[in-house]
Design a protein around this nucleic acid. Structure first.
Ligand SMILES: [Mg+2]
Length: 318
DNA sequence: GTGGTACCTGTACT
DNA sequence: AAGTACAGGTACC
């Protein structure tokens, strides 16, 4: 995999027993430390990003014993960690995600980086032919590393200065104003404000985030889980609602829309089963719903999910 | 609290 | 080939 993490282009490759990493480039502004120090630093960043200090095996065991279906999914999808993302990037990204499809979201974020983010040039002498191209988000073929332009995510300051009109031009649609308004609010609140929410309790985090433009309950919970250390938070979108109806409480099907109460019920159902790390458990169940992971699941389970979708179960609410 | 509506835009479908 | 539904919701009434 090759992609951008913070100010650097990183290459990761995994073998059966190890994971290797290499830094291919970094933003010009970051004064580059001696190579040996950079390696140690990047290793620490990766440990942080993948949350490797949190043991996953005990969680899997706990979830598997709590739920029969989860037992089989856990066996089929090992290593499903929640990434500890950079809060600002995470926030803007999920604002872009609302009422939108995954394909366009990716395109918008890439446009945002290319237009407003600092460019990352690769180091001299990087053997790009040797770089991994394991289907990372931004690399699609063996030649691509050479031509691909890499950009870090833009700063709050830059986004605050962007015009709504120009943002719309990048394909953001009506979310353009959300991005600008939220960027202005963040600038107003000061540099460390968002990250400081990592020290706050779940309810405070939610309340503070929802006060931002373009941030409702679902986006807030995504930011809380994926960047603010709120491990028990369960973001409830249409997929997660389906899961809850199908697996946990059929009576939820009677609900016509995802009201705040229904939202809370779904979260409570997850927490009653999976406990403190319900957000992580949710990540695993959510992943199992996605097409790219379906092929790894037991055939009868895939069949069951397909039947639910076809039989007026999934999406039958609205 | 709940129910209803409008909303950018690309893509899949009919 | 035009017309419509839908997608990792939110704001506003
Ligand atoms: Mg809000």
């Amino acid at each position: 995999w090759v992609g951008v993490l913070g100010p650097r282009v990183l290459e990761l490759r995994q073998t059966e027993s190890d994971c290797f990493f290499r830094c291919l480039g970094e933003v010009a502004s970051a004064e580059s430390a001696p190579a040996a120090e950079t390696v140690d630093h990047v290793r620490a960043e990766l440990v942080d990003y993948f949350q490797l200090s949190k043991p996953l095996a005990p969680m899997y065991e706990h979830w598997a014993s709590a739920d029969r279906r989860m037992n089989r999914i856990a066996a089929a999808l090992p290593g499903m960690r929640v990434l500890r993302q950079e809060p600002h990037e995470c926030l803007f990204s999920f604002i872009c995600s609302s009422n939108n499809n995954i394909g366009r979201i990716g395109g918008i974020l890439q446009s945002l980086r290319a237009r407003y983010g600092p460019r990352i040039s690769l180091y001299e002498g990087i053997d790009t032919a040797d770089a991994a191209t394991f289907g990372g988000d931004e690399i699609t073929d063996l030649q691509a590393v050479d031509d691909e332009a890499f950009f870090a995510f833009p700063s709050v300051e830059t986004l605050a200065e962007a015009s709504e009109e120009e943002l719309r031009g990048l394909g953001l649609g009506y979310r353009a104003d959300f991005i600008r308004q939220t960027a202005l609010a963040l600038r107003q609140k000061g540099d460390g404000w968002l990250c400081s929410l990592r020290e706050e309790d779940v309810d405070t985090v939610r309340e503070e985030l929802c006060a931002l433009r373009g941030v409702g309950p679902k986006v807030a919970d995504c930011v809380a889980l994926f960047s603010l250390d709120q491990v028990e938070t369960v973001p409830v979108d249409t997929h997660v609602w389906d899961i809850a109806c199908r697996e946990f409480d059929p009576s939820l099907r009677e609900c016509l829309s995802l009201t705040p109460n229904v939202y809370a019920r779904v979260g409570a159902l997850f927490r009653s089963r999976f406990g403190t790390y319900s957000g992580w458990a949710h990540q695993l169940l959510f992943a199992a719903e996605l097409p790219q992971f379906r092929s790894r699941l037991p055939a009868d389970m895939v069949e069951e999910m397909a039947e639910w979708r076809g039989g007026g179960g999934g999406g039958a609410h609205k």
